[in-house]
C-alpha cells in the first residue's frame, strides 16, 4: 500500500513528522497511507508559498492563464485514473465522471479569467482635485485553503484555481480521509509548468494544522470550505493577528457551475488606488 507524499515547494516530500495514517475506500478496505503533516511541514509549505509569490504574481496574466489551461489539459489527460480513484473512494461511476469533468471545466473557466478580471474590477475614480485616480486589484499574497471533507477533486480545484489565477500562492489542507485525490492532483500540477511553491498540498489531521495556519502571520488570506464549527471558531478568533482576509464558503455542492465566478478571484485580491498628478 502506497504512502502518498505531500507537495511542498514543487517537490514531493514525506512529512517531517514521519507519521502517516491509513485511509480506506468506500467498502472500508485499506486504500493508502497519507502523510500526517506536522506544524513544521505547514511552516515549510507557507515558506515555499511566500517564496513563490514574487515570481508568480509578476507573471503576465496571460501566462498564468496559459498555465491554468495547461493544468486543465493535463487533468483531462488523466481523466480515467481520476474517475477510477473517485469511484474507489466514494462515488458511483457516473458521479465520478461528472466531478472530473466539472474539475476540468473549472480550470478552463478560471484560465479564461486571468487577463480579464482586472479590467472588470478596476476603475477610474472621479476626484475633486487635479489627479488621475484609479484603482486596480492586486493579489494579497499567500492563501491558506481548507478543503471540505468530501468532493475530493472538485472542491480543491474550485478553491485553488481562482486564488492562483489572481497571482496568489496557496497552501491547501486536503480532506482528511479523501486526501489521496489531492495528492494525485499534485502530479497534474507538477506537470503543468506551474512553478514550484505556487500550490502546496498537505494531508493530515486538520485540527492539528488549522490553529497554526490561522495564527501564521505570513498567511494573508484564509478560505474555509469545510463545514466545521470548531474550525470556524478558531479562525474567527485568531485571524485578526495579522488581519487576514477570511472567507467562509457555505455551499455544499462544488460541482455546480454557479459556484464559479470572478468574484471568487476577488476574494484573494486587494484594491490598490493610485493618485497620479495630472499634467505630467
Amino acid at each position: 500500500m502506497k504512502t502518498r507524499k505531500l507537495y511542498i515547494g514543487g517537490a514531493f516530500k514525506r512529512s517531517e513528522s514521519e507519521h502517516s495514517y491509513p485511509v480506506t475506500d468506500k467498502k472500508q478496505e485499506p486504500l493508502a497511507h497519507l502523510c500526517r503533516s506536522s506544524r513544521k511541514d505547514l511552516r515549510n509549505a507557507v515558506e515555499a508559498a511566500r517564496k513563490a509569490f514574487g515570481g508568480w504574481s509578476a507573471r503576465s496574466a496571460y501566462n498564468r492563464g496559459q498555465i491554468l489551461y495547461r493544468m486543465a489539459e493535463m487533468l483531462e489527460g488523466r481523466r480515467e485514473p481520476f474517475i477510477h480513484e473517485l469511484e474507489q473512494i466514494s462515488l458511483t461511476r457516473q458521479q465520478a465522471e461528472a466531478e472530473t469533468d466539472a474539475a476540468i471545466d473549472r480550470l478552463v473557466h478560471y484560465a479564461g479569467w486571468t487577463d480579464k478580471y482586472p479590467t472588470l474590477f478596476s476603475s477610474v475614480n472621479p476626484v475633486a482635485a487635479p489627479y488621475f485616480n484609479f484603482s486596480i486589484p492586486e493579489p494579497c499574497g499567500v492563501a491558506g485553503i481548507i478543503s471540505p471533507e468530501d468532493q475530493a477533486l472538485i472542491a480543491p480545484v474550485s478553491l485553488m484555481a481562482p486564488v492562483i489565477a489572481g497571482g496568489n500562492t496557496c497552501v491547501l489542507l486536503t480532506s482528511e480521509q479523501m486526501g489521496s485525490v489531492a495528492c494525485t492532483l499534485a502530479e497534474v500540477l507538477h506537470s503543468s509548468d506551474l512553478p514550484g511553491g505556487v500550490v502546496n498540498i498537505l494531508t493530515g489531521i486538520r485540527s492539528e494544522l488549522v490553529p497554526h495556519l490561522v495564527r501564521h502571520l505570513d498567511v494573508n488570506v484564509l478560505i474555509l470550505a469545510a463545514d466545521d464549527s470548531d474550525m470556524k471558531k478558531e479562525i474567527q478568533e485568531n485571524a485578526h493577528l495579522n488581519v487576514k482576509r477570511v472567507h467562509i464558503y457555505e455551499q455544499k455542492d462544488w460541482n455546480k457551475e454557479t459556484t464559479q465566478s470572478p468574484y471568487r478571484i476577488m476574494d484573494a485580491q486587494e484594491i490598490k488606488t493610485t493618485w497620479h498628478p495630472v499634467g505630467y
Binding site: 511552516r43 507557507v46 511566500r50 497554526h212 495564527r215 501564521h216 502571520l217 505570513d218 495579522n242
Partner: peptide, 9 residues
C-alpha cells in the same frame, strides 16, 4: 508569541 512570523513586519 507562539505564531509563525512574517518578514512583512
Amino acid at each position: 508569541s507562539g505564531s509563525y512570523q512574517s518578514a512583512d513586519y
